[in-house]
Computed example of a mutant assay.
Amino acid sequence: MRESESLKFTVPISSELHFLAKQFRLSHRNSKKAKQVYFNTLAVSAVNFYLRCMGVKTSWSASLSCNPVIQTMMDVADLEIIGLGKLECRPVLSDEKVVYIPPEVWSDRIGYVAVQFDQSLREATLLGFSKTAQNGEILINQLRSLEEFILQLSEIPQKVKQPIHLSQWLTNIVDAGWQTVESLLTQQSELAFRFRSPEQILAENSENSPINVQKATLLDLGGQSESKPIALVVGLIPLSEQEINIIVKVCPVNGQNYLPEELELMVLDDLGISVMQATARNTKSIQLNFSSEFGERFSIKMTLGDVNFTEVFLV
């Protein structure tokens, strides 16, 4: 990576990032949509790399651009900045002078970053940012510097993170950033094999009652430029009108056979006290099972080095 005198930021586009973009692209049969998703994915990954280098916490898994269903319906390249909101990362080809902003992302964005690719698609340069969509077009020569962008982030009030309502999953109301395991398996064919046996075991351990609902989200617990993507899966098995069994599972993705070493998975009670935990050491997956009553809160926390992720759930 290198920083120019105009405060642009250039990063290499690794083969791993191209692989991820290809996986998303293969989810779409329409060639125009597939190409759009490919470039959007590369743009988001470049901005994600930059923000991690700047110490800004992001969650790509909570972004609409990570959802193949949303990709089909919208031209979206958003990246969730934890506690602040969604940043739109718009791809720009090497000969273009204008950043096109599709109507579906004119609102609900804290800003827009232009990402320009070289002709070989081996490098991406963050050209600058704009606070607004400006009626769908932003002239590249009118972009503000990345330095201003980082300063702007420090001035945005922190959002209060709302809990994930698990009881709503039972009525097919699912929170943004979560998807069916089948949808995730479409993206991650390697993961499909790993879920067959655990699902059978879960059914046996619950007196042959099937998992009523199972949703998944993709996370990246890598620090700085390092990418360590994993899948977090939460399954629900109602036991009665008051109680429900909850299954929490983490698995490697992107062709990885094992979870990152020293990845720690914890279940916290409503006071933030760890009540269950496990650590990956040459581990293919981690699974924690427990029961909860409707109306109770708990959290799932994962840590890997100095990177951590916490999600709050309301049963």
Score class of each variant (00 low, 15 high):
Glu80Pro: 00
Ile81Asp: 08
Ile81Asn: 11
Ile82Pro: 04
Ile82Ala: 13
Ile82Leu: 14
Gly83Tyr: 15
Gly83Lys: 11
Lys86Gly: 01
Lys86Pro: 00
Lys86Met: 13
Lys86Trp: 07
Leu87Cys: 10
Leu87Lys: 04
Leu87Ala: 11
Glu88Trp: 05
Glu88Arg: 04
Glu88Asp: 14
Cys89Lys: 04
Arg90Phe: 06
Arg90Ala: 14
Arg90Cys: 11
Pro91Gly: 10
Pro91Val: 12
Pro91Met: 11
Pro91Phe: 14
Val92Ile: 10
Leu93Cys: 05
Ser94Gln: 12
Glu96Pro: 06
Glu96Thr: 06
Lys97Gly: 04
Lys97Thr: 14
Lys97His: 07
Val98Met: 09
Val98Glu: 10
Val99Met: 15
Val99Leu: 14
Val99Lys: 05
Val99Trp: 03
Tyr100Ile: 15
Ile101Thr: 06
Ile101Leu: 03
Pro102Val: 08
Pro102His: 12
Pro102Phe: 09
Pro102Arg: 12
Glu104Val: 11
Val105Cys: 11
Ser107Thr: 15
Ser107Gly: 09
Asp108Ile: 04
Asp108Trp: 00
Asp108Gly: 07
Arg109Pro: 11
Ile110Thr: 06
Ile110Gln: 03
Ile110Pro: 07
Gly111Asp: 11
Gly111Met: 09
Tyr112Trp: 09
Val115Thr: 12
Gln116Trp: 04
Gln116Cys: 05
Gln116Arg: 15
Gln116Pro: 00
Phe117Lys: 03
Phe117Trp: 02
Asp118Gln: 12
Ser120Met: 08
Ser120Gln: 12
Leu121Asp: 06
Arg122Gln: 15
Glu123Ile: 02
Glu123Asn: 12
Thr125Asp: 07
Thr125Phe: 05
Thr125Leu: 03
Thr125Ala: 01
Leu126Cys: 08
Gly128Thr: 03
Gly128Ala: 10
Phe129Gln: 00
Lys131Asn: 10
Gln134Thr: 02
Gln134Cys: 14
Gln134Asn: 14
Asn135Ala: 12
Glu137Thr: 14
Glu137Cys: 10
Glu137Arg: 14
Ile138Tyr: 05
Ile138Asn: 13
Ile138Gly: 02
Ile140Ser: 06
Ile140Cys: 01
Ile140Asp: 07
Asn141Ile: 08
Asn141Glu: 12
Gln142Leu: 04
Gln142Met: 07
Gln142Ala: 05
Gln142Pro: 04
Leu143Glu: 03
Leu143Cys: 02
Leu143Phe: 00
Arg144Cys: 02
Arg144Leu: 06
Ser145Gly: 09
Ser145Cys: 01
Leu146Glu: 03
Leu146Arg: 01
Leu146Trp: 02
Glu147Gln: 01
Glu148Ala: 02
Phe149Val: 04
Phe149Gln: 10
Ile150Val: 15
Leu151Pro: 08
Leu151Asn: 15
Leu151Trp: 02
Gln152Ile: 12
